[in-house]
Design a protein around this nucleic acid. Structure first.
Lengths: 195, 195
DNA sequence: CAAATATATGACCGATTGGTCATTTATGCA
DNA sequence: TGCATAAATGACCAATCGGTCATATATTTG
């Protein structure tokens, strides 16, 4: 039983970056076979079909990225530091924390009109990010760091949206220039709401 | 000669929304055959392969969307009105101006690590949007509508990034709620920079 | 250790993929 | 109208797709 779970995890580890880079539709089981050096039959011992494997890969990508992010954020001492850490964490779109870029953007746009299961996973991932940011702002308001009239919910959404948009721009241009404008603008707004 | 070009355009018209909805990899030539009711051989009379057809579909989607946008914006009398029109035009992500949503987001994320030709097309499309917004702001500064110290280039990028991010959020949630927060925030900032 | 169970293999399957081509049909021009 | 050219057809192709399964090999457990 231990061996089985080990192999299953091994497959997910190898498959996750491939799915995040090529997309679900464009990734074949042969791609995963090649990456894992496992036989086709072995794949189907651990995953009943490609869709199940793809879902596991989506979950894995979100978890790995989330864990890395939370590890950084948890080191922050102030609410402002939390927001800055969040922004800095995603500020390099050309060399992003996860191979293939942001999984919320990648899987979200692909799943949009075709895969309701993955779409809902991404929807939850987005909500998690928005809430995370909103809660940091609320915390900062509560402890007197931020202006009390700052709309935490709205600005949580704004930060997330701007970072995702900046991610897209910078990935397409192959340069972090525009992302740095986003980062600068967001940090300036945070400063303006700092007491 | 006239007939040939007519059929070619007909195929593109039918194919474009399918590619924008399902993605390039997940769209098959059979899908296009079914939509056009044309034979497979006929498709290959007008397009040497799927990649060429996909590129034509990407171009078409961007052009149709761009034309619709410019038609609206050209009716604006002031620079502020131009910016508001741009924002309003993209404010409904659940029922977007183009079937399948924003092609820059859709094709951009898919092409990112796999299709340099399409990627560059999207890169140019993004730059066009940024420049369009930047020029509206510059125009507004020049004619005394906006504060002269407003950074046109930066804010052009910010508007575009926020709208794309908002588009993603609202598509995933199936609600325009978060997009409306984005719209509200952007318009407020524009007002703050209006003299 | 031995029996039972779980895991790994790769040949094999039908379906579908993108793409070709000889042939037929429609179009455009002299 | 008649002829040359262009366009449309659909059977056909090799390659690949996701997926199955009898068989073989490890692993776990009594």
């Amino acid at each position: 039983m231990a061996k089985g779970e080990e192999t299953r995890q091994f497959i997910i580890d190898k498959a996750a970056p491939i799915f995040n880079t090529k997309g679900i539709a464009a990734t074949s089981m042969s791609d995963i076979m090649e990456a894992t050096k496992l036989s086709k039959g072995s794949m189907y011992v651990h995953f009943e079909n490609k869709e199940v494997l793809a879902c596991a890969a989506v979950d894995h990508n979100m978890k790995v990225l989330g864990d890395k992010l939370m590890a950084k954020i948890s080191q922050s001492k102030t609410a402002k530091e939390e927001l800055f850490t969040y922004i800095d964490f995603f500020s390099n779109a050309v060399n992003p924390p996860l191979t293939g870029g942001c999984p919320l953007l990648n899987f979200g746009t692909e799943a949009d009109d075709t895969n309701p299961v993955v779409k809902e996973k991404i929807n939850q991932g987005i909500k998690f990010n928005q809430k995370l940011l909103e809660n940091s702002i609320k915390k900062g308001i509560a402890n007197g760091e931020f202006k009390p009239d700052w709309n935490a919910g709205d600005f949580g959404t704004v930060i997330f949206a701007m970072m995702e948009g900046g991610h897209l721009i910078s990935r397409m241009s192959g340069s972090n220039d525009k992302m740095q404008i986003i980062v600068k603008t967001l940090k300036k707004t945070i400063e303006e709401n700092t007491l």
